[in-house]
């Protein structure tokens, strides 16, 4: 993050735009937007120095609802846009956001490499285990026996994957899980993620009450992540296997230098012509 103070202090609502979200009533995404705006206010970031980047999906509509710079791109490429922006503009606080399909299916390759590249970007995935915008198909985090989609009448039939474990294996340096039903804790996770120097992955359970009404039961299933939080990836990997996948809180944090090009110009283009002159 960039340490900048603004006067007078902005409130959380100052980080929300006046555009009305397209989300269904009861969607967990409202609470994520709220937690994000609180986190930005808490950090007292100048609005013009923050950029929200997203792909396609219900959750990817988020940038337009915030009063910071935004880029709403194509499906699956939020992390690529965010990476290019951060590489060229290290002074900005860059936050990428999206859903489970956008981030783990069509954008899966970028997720691996963003973790590995460890640029100073915060990535918030609002996971509801379904493609909502296309009216309810299975995503990579959908359980194999979920048969409510016409596209997979017998259920996807393949195991869902564990995003935190993949982030760990790919080299992310900050991994946390949050729940839209616990906005205060989520706010704190986002604050810590933005403060962390490197790639911060925040995996948020954010129910889709339209296509996955059973997710209303998540508030009974989530629990404090009970495994040891260390900077040791081996212990964290073991902990993630022991956890039932619904533990929320900080999971892993380590300090590694972020990848960030920062070169001072030492010449003009005309100086580079010498190499070609006969």
């Amino acid at each position: 993050m960039t340490e900048t103070q603004t006067q007078p202090a902005l409130k959380a609502k100052d980080y929300k735009s006046d555009i009305k979200p397209v989300w269904c009533p009861g969607s967990g995404h409202f609470a994520v937007l709220s937690a994000l705006s609180k986190a930005l206010a808490h950090l007292a970031l100048k609005r013009e120095d923050v950029a929200m980047v997203s792909g396609i999906g219900c959750s990817s509509r988020l940038p337009a609802y915030t009063e910071v710079y935004g880029f709403h791109g194509v499906h699956g490429r939020a992390l690529a846009v965010a990476g290019g922006l951060k590489a060229a503009r290290p002074d900005l606080t860059v936050i990428a956001a999206g859903g489970d399909g956008d981030g783990f299916s069509i954008g899966g390759n970028h997720f691996l490499h963003a973790c590995r590249r460890n640029m100073d970007i915060t990535y918030i995935v609002m996971d509801n285990e379904v493609y909502g915008m296309t009216k309810g198909q299975a995503s990579p985090t959908t359980s194999p026996d979920w048969s409510a989609s016409k596209l997979t009448p017998h259920g996807p039939g393949v195991p869902s994957f564990n995003p935190a474990a993949i982030a760990l294996a790919s080299g992310a340096t900050f991994i946390a899980r949050g729940f839209s039903g616990d906005p205060n804790k989520l706010t704190q996770m986002i604050v810590e993620g933005i403060q962390h120097k490197g790639f911060s992955f925040i995996h948020v359970f954010s129910p889709c009450t339209t296509f996955r009404p059973e997710q209303k039961g998540w508030k009974k299933q989530v629990h404090e992540y009970a495994e040891e939080v260390t900077a040791n990836p081996v212990k964290t990997a073991q902990g993630l296997q022991a956890d039932d996948g619904m533990g929320t809180g900080l999971i892993y944090r380590t300090e590694l230098p972020p990848w960030q090009p920062a070169y001072d110009a030492i010449c003009e283009p005309s100086a580079l012509e010498k190499e070609f002159q006969v």
Partner: peptide
Amino acid sequence: AEDELASVNMIIGSSFGG
């Protein structure tokens, strides 16, 4: 970049950044 999908979207990001 990791692939050409990333390449083009990365330069969209950097150009958006000015």
